[in-house]
Design a protein around this nucleic acid. Sequence first.
DNA 1: AATGAATGAGTGTTCATTCAT
DNA 2: GATGAATGAACACTCATTCAT
Lengths: 185, 185, 185, 185
Amino acid sequence: MGDSKRPLRADAARNRARVLEVAYEALATEGTSVSIDEIARRAGVGAGTVWRHFPTKAALLSAVIVGRVHTLADTARELLTSGDPSEAVFEFLRVVIAEGALDRSLADAMAGSGIDLDVVAPGAEDEFRTALGELLVAAQRSGSVKATITAPDLKALIVGALAMQAYDAEVADRVTEMAILGLRP
Amino acid sequence: MGDSKRPLRADAARNRARVLEVAYEALATEGTSVSIDEIARRAGVGAGTVWRHFPTKAALLSAVIVGRVHTLADTARELLTSGDPSEAVFEFLRVVIAEGALDRSLADAMAGSGIDLDVVAPGAEDEFRTALGELLVAAQRSGSVKATITAPDLKALIVGALAMQAYDAEVADRVTEMAILGLRP
Amino acid sequence: MGDSKRPLRADAARNRARVLEVAYEALATEGTSVSIDEIARRAGVGAGTVWRHFPTKAALLSAVIVGRVHTLADTARELLTSGDPSEAVFEFLRVVIAEGALDRSLADAMAGSGIDLDVVAPGAEDEFRTALGELLVAAQRSGSVKATITAPDLKALIVGALAMQAYDAEVADRVTEMAILGLRP
Amino acid sequence: MGDSKRPLRADAARNRARVLEVAYEALATEGTSVSIDEIARRAGVGAGTVWRHFPTKAALLSAVIVGRVHTLADTARELLTSGDPSEAVFEFLRVVIAEGALDRSLADAMAGSGIDLDVVAPGAEDEFRTALGELLVAAQRSGSVKATITAPDLKALIVGALAMQAYDAEVADRVTEMAILGLRP
DNA sequence: AATGAATGAGTGTTCATTCAT
DNA sequence: GATGAATGAACACTCATTCAT
């Protein structure tokens, strides 16, 4: 099991990665209204090539989002092991905010009709939830976050930060700092 | 005051109001993807009539948003005079959340490229800021909100609540409650 | 009842008729593969205008077919009243064949997936069946068609003639003449 | 006889045959709208392999049709030698009808613009005509078909049966039976 | 002032054909 | 010889905007 897809040919893999990268930037900059043609143009490939790799626009959006979720989960793990575990959760929130300017696509796409992370990439969702859980446990163990705070609270805060970021960076910043005060004992 | 436009004829004013009302409902229900034709159809007028009053789709969105801001400012004033002033600000936040399910359009439209409330309706912005300022002063005077909280903090919280609402009701709920904890002394 | 649609504005009606006419010719000449854009171009209108009148390609095909069925029913009635009733049914078959060169669209469209005359225009279907029934009764009464022949036989012959016409005029001609021999006592 | 093409390598020949077989089934089932990619996928070969053997879609269609014509000619010969020669021609017609459900592709493809059997495979055409001629001669010799019927009449009936089959099985059935009555003395 | 028909560029998606591996 | 990725034009359909009535 797990070998249902042979590895892509080198050139195809290169194109796929290039499209994903360009799509991420384009979505972050322009929102979900960017056209597939525009993404293809920027990536220097034909529209059909985008279609080969991502047969619907939703599939492309999902792939971008899944990639972003992986990156965030990586970031969470790094913060936990490389710094002060009691502050890692707050650091993570700030990273989400700081990088969120590029993440208009996530909130847009997920708010937009019909993309459910649980459905398109259950693995990514689990990975993300696990990382968040570790951040939370570390913080509560060291007393920097109230014991009454739950993992869903934390996830809501992350998602909310992204949603606010999509609208306005300063708004996200201010509200998150207020909510962080509410997290502390 | 010295407006260059004469008052609208009665039937025109009625049409304008009807379009606005229908547009608000349609945008709240369907998001910004509703077509102008659909709004015209629901309002029982021709597409050209919508165009006469709102020459671009952005103009219609702006007008809807301005109307909504007026309503929110009214709500703020009512809460201040009819209930406990020390809790009015929290009540207001909860109203924003509760009604926000109808306000997907606001965040959508404002997050979408290029609508700036300060530009399209400086008066509405002022009115809203004033009402928020009064809520804040009342709360701080009675000690229910920390003295370090500023009007921009509060505005960010309102706007953030709307942005989160557009994505997910529960997220908005949880994050706002956390932030309210951060507001209290 | 029956006034659910107000009469079209004069210019709209003209456009609708022009599109239908052009569509009939184009479909007859090129088959169902003609694009809507091509039809719009030939009719001298925008693609959106075609769409306003016929929101899907199937709707346009249906309208063309219904129009054609009406014309055929008219022809049947004329043949019955203006000539020899005993030969009217054979004359009608020959007209179908002769004009069928323009009718590639009918067989194509009806063979193609999903257009059912009974569904798109039950009235037209009834009108057609009635006209065929009258042709058959008149012929059987005068003894020019066997009593064992039924209305469905006759309808099959018409439809088959169209289907063969779409492929080859001579084939339709020869087979129909053979079948006519089978019809006679 | 002196063909300019050397015989195909064994594996290439196997691929060619497999593609043809799959193409016949796919065309019969789905009509001419099946994509080359889909046929390649079902045959388990790459799209380029299909292209190597059949450089255009029309070439593939032609090859399928030619193959089908060969099969029909074989059937005709078998019926002539293994059964009652006087009824063989009627049996053959019924076989064409019965199997015609799989032959939507023939009528589709030949009705569609530009494939002419005489051009793409004069040999197959001759073989088919010869077999039909033999059926006809046998029937007329035994008195089961009128002497006035010609080979082109019979060919029209076969082709017409296929054309009608593509539209509706019952139509083909009824019309062919009527025409058979016209064939008998 | 109001209507609603017309426009035409734009969307996501599809696919026959070509070509680098 | 075989592969399957890439191409790019085409499709049906949509809609904000304009304009004749």
